[in-house]
Amino acid sequence: MSTLRGFVFYLALAATIIVLTVLLLATKPFLSLDRRYESICRPWAETVLWLLRVICGIRLETQGMENMPAEGGFVVLSKHQSAMDPFLLTAVLKRPACYLYKKSLHWIPCLGWAIWSMDMLAIDRAKGRSAFQSFMKKGPEVLARGWWICLFPEGTRVPPGERVPYKTGGARFACATGTPILPIAHNAGHCWPKNSVAKNPGVVRVSVGPVIETAGRDPHEVSREVEAWIENETARLDRC
C-alpha cells in the first residue's frame, strides 16, 4: 500500500511541477523574485505537503517556531534525510529560501527550469574551490535581498539512524560574513525514505533550533555546535 500511495503521489507531484514551471517562466519578465516566491513557490510547497497528507497519510508537525525570527539575514543549516526536505523548508521558513544546489539540476526538464528561473545559488561541484568562491561572492547578494540561504551540511541524504561528517562550507560562509545560523532538525526520512517510491504514513516532525551566532567565531567550532544540536534533536524527534 505504501508503494501504491507513492506512485499516486508522484503522478500528482509531476502535474504540480508542470504547473509550477509554466507559472514561473511566464511571470519571470514582470514579477519580482519575492512576488514569484510568495505567490507561486511557497503555495506550491504547501500544496505538495497537502498531497502527502491526503494521498500518503503524512502529516507535518512543527516545533520551536518561536526560535525563528521574522526578519534579518540567516544561514539555514538543515538535516538532510529525504527529498521532502526542500518542501518542508520552503513552506515553513518565514523568509524566502535560497538553496545552494548542483548546477546540473538545470538539465532536469521542468523542475530544473523552474529552479533556474528563481536565481538561486547554483554551483559546479566539479570546480572544487572555485565553486565555494562563487558561493562566497553570490551569497551576500542573496542576503541583501532579504532571502535566507539554505544548505544541507551532510552533503547528501542520510537515512535515519546513520551519520556522516558535516561539511563546513555553510559555517565558513556564515562566520566570514557574520551571519547567524538557524539550525533545523527533522525526521522526514521515516516517511519519505531515500531512494524509495514508498511513502509511509506518519508524522514528520520539524524542529527549529535557537539561533547560533557566528561573528568572530571559528567556523569549525560553529560547525560542531550545529552538528551536535541537529543530531541530538533528530534523535529526540525519533523517540517522540
Rank of each mutant, 00 (worst) to 15 (best):
F7L: 10
F9R: 12
F9Q: 10
A14C: 10
T16F: 09
I18P: 07
I18L: 15
V19I: 15
L20K: 09
L23E: 14
L24S: 12
L25A: 10
A26T: 15
K28G: 06
L31Y: 14
S32H: 06
L33M: 11
Y37M: 01
Y37S: 02
E38C: 06
C41W: 10
C41Q: 13
R42K: 14
A45T: 11
E46N: 01
T47V: 12
L51E: 04
L52C: 05
I55R: 01
G57L: 06
I58M: 01
R59V: 05
E61W: 07
Q63D: 14
M65K: 14
E66Y: 10
M68N: 10
M68C: 07
M68E: 12
P69T: 13
G72L: 07
K79V: 10
M84H: 12
D85W: 02
F87S: 02
L88S: 01
L88D: 06
L89E: 02
L89C: 06
L89W: 01
A97V: 02
C98Y: 03
C98W: 01
L111F: 15
L111D: 13
G112M: 11
W113S: 13
S117Q: 14
L121D: 00
G128N: 08
R129Q: 11
K137C: 08
P140I: 09
P140R: 05
E141S: 11
L143F: 08
L143S: 00
A144M: 04
W148R: 07
W148P: 00
I149G: 06
C150F: 07
L151H: 10
L151F: 04
T156L: 05
V158S: 06
P165I: 06
P165E: 09
P165A: 08
Y166K: 04
T168I: 08
G169K: 03
R172A: 12
F173C: 06
C175G: 11
T177F: 01
I184K: 03
A185R: 05
N187I: 13
H190R: 14
C191T: 08
P193F: 02
P193V: 03
N195W: 11
N195V: 08
S196G: 01
G202Y: 15
V203M: 13
V204Q: 02
V204S: 00
S207K: 05
P210I: 03
P210G: 05
P219S: 13
E221Q: 15
E221Y: 11
E225Q: 12
E227N: 01
W229G: 03
I230A: 04
N232E: 15
T234W: 03
R239C: 07
R239E: 14
